[in-house]
């Protein structure tokens, strides 16, 4: 019988699956940002990785499946400007941000159960891992790949790219990325348009804010939570990292850069991406 082969987005080819520490398999999948009900595209991703989870178990592997919930730091337009999606929704609904998350979390779990997906082994929340995220940002700064401007900490993509190639996963070259990048309001303090936020300074009236070495009122950037939580529960290097195709860039690309930037190790051996949905041919 032929062994299991997995299409690895990183190498762009099918590779024989050889876990780092058999019979154990560590798998991290990016979960939802719970500012609204999970939509069908999200569901498809979780069903796809449910198959991976179930099949690895069937093959006899002991799988630790970590799928996070983003409850802070995910800004509108997936970038570094604009409101936090959850904080904004909380204001609209006159609720605590955690109330918004809790409300949609229940619906999310109900749907996943209805669609017969097995629950993950660990479902960590970004707000529950602030110290881990701060520590990782500090390590990246110590290594010279991040800088602080007025309480905002940015990842220095150009500096990183001098030592490690940036864009390996998405297959993008740094020069091409410049052509795609638009100048956005409020990003002038970045040294470079490609840099992304690791820590954000937020107004002190925000509910979701934490003290950090960079100020009294801040919150983590969107990408750092997955790096910090996957490392905490699966180790510096683990087997499979998955998510929807839409997360490949910039989110997963940033995760790889953050881990290498902090501990000089690429987090996952196999990167898997589930494709998107259309309805009657329309995205």
């Amino acid at each position: 019988m032929n062994p299991l082969y997995i299409y690895n987005s990183l190498s762009r080819q099918k590779e024989k699956f050889e876990p780092l520490h058999p019979p154990f398999v560590g798998m991290y999948v990016c979960g939802p940002t719970l500012y609204s009900e999970a939509h069908l595209g999200n569901l498809r991703t979780y069903v796809s990785f449910d198959i991976v989870h179930r099949y690895l178990k069937f093959l006899g592997y002991k799988v630790r499946y970590v799928r996070n919930i983003t409850d802070v730091g995910h800004l509108e337009n997936d970038g570094d400007t604009g409101d936090d999606k959850i904080e904004k929704q909380a204001k609209l609904q006159h609720k605590e941000p955690m109330e918004v998350v809790e409300q949609y979390k229940q619906g999310y779990h109900k749907i996943l159960e209805l669609f017969n997906t097995l629950p993950p082994s660990i479902e960590p929340l970004a707000t529950g891992h602030i110290p881990e995220q701060i520590e990782m940002v500090e390590k990246i700064m110590e290594n010279g790949y991040a800088y602080d401007v007025n309480g905002n900490v940015y990842f220095n993509v150009r500096k990183y790219n001098e030592d490690h190639p940036y864009g390996q996963l998405s297959g993008r070259k740094i020069d091409e990325l410049y052509n795609e990048t638009r100048d956005l309001d409020g990003q002038q303090e970045k040294r470079d348009a490609l840099d992304f936020a690791l820590w954000k300074n937020v107004p002190k009236e925000h509910i979701m804010k934490w003290k950090s070495p960079w100020g009294n009122s801040g919150c983590p950037g969107w990408h750092i939570e997955c790096s910090a939580m996957s490392q905490k529960y699966l180790g510096d290097e683990f087997d499979i990292h998955g998510g929807g195709m839409d997360l490949k860039f910039p989110h997963h690309e940033a995760e790889i850069a953050q881990s290498i930037g902090a501990i000089k190790k690429s987090p996952a051996k196999y990167w898997m991406h589930g494709n998107m949905l259309t309805f009657e041919g329309v995205k």
């Binding site: 669609f115 017969n116 991406h273 589930g274 494709n275 259309t278 309805f279 009657e280 041919g281």
Partner: peptide
Amino acid sequence: SAMVVRFFMLQSHYSSELDFSN
């Protein structure tokens, strides 16, 4: 039913785009 929708999703490979239609 949820099982029919799940079945429908699995009738495509996860790496392919999936078009929902009646």
